[in-house]
């Protein structure tokens, strides 16, 4: 199991790097789906099968399909890919990379002080659901309102005049 964790982690990192380096937007999207699926595997390894399934269905499934639809609607062709290549000048990478490297370095420093070996144990759908519809029912309601707001806003924004 532990090997699965590291393999999936490596795939996630590689796929994610591939996402941000892509010039073809559809390829980028496919790499992102791969990255999300890898993370879903990690969730499963960490004993969260419910979250893993949601990650696969909602994230890699629904949300990414949404992206795909929009890309189709925008209908960006070969011209965009050339443009994309122009935009990705090496100089543009320097500052963000340095910034991200510093941030990562700090996070690593902070995180390396934690020393705990966790033994994953399954926390299944039942426990999560019991909590969701028990003490966290208000959070569920809030999430539903948020989704409703997103729905209304998306409809309004994307509407043609």
């Amino acid at each position: 199991m532990i090997a699965l964790f590291y393999i999936a982690g490596a795939i996630a990192v590689i796929a994610t790097v591939a996402v941000i380096l892509q010039t073809n937007i559809v390829h980028g999207l496919l790499y992102l789906i791969l990255s999300l699926l890898a993370v879903a595997v990690i969730f499963y390894v960490l004993g969260a099968p419910f979250a893993a399934v949601l990650e696969a269905i909602v994230y890699a499934g629904a949300i990414m399909v949404l992206f795909l639809f929009v890309i189709m609607m925008l209908n960006l062709g070969q011209h965009t890919r050339d443009q994309e290549r122009d935009w990705l000048s090496p100089r543009g990478w320097i500052a963000p990379s340095i910034m991200a490297a510093i941030l990562l370095g700090q996070l690593l420093t902070v995180l390396s002080s934690i020393d705990y070996d966790l033994v994953p144990e399954q926390v299944g759908v039942m426990e999560v659901s019991a909590l969701l519809f028990g003490p966290y029912v208000l959070a569920v309601e809030l999430a539903s309102i948020l989704l409703l707001a997103g729905l209304v806003a998306a409809y309004h924004l994307a509407k043609t005049k």
Binding site: M99, A100, I102, Q106
Partner: peptide, 10 residues
């Protein structure tokens, strides 16, 4: 924002 975050974490 990222720079601010770096500073804060520092």
């Amino acid at each position: 924002i990222a720079a601010g975050l770096v500073v804060l974490i520092t």
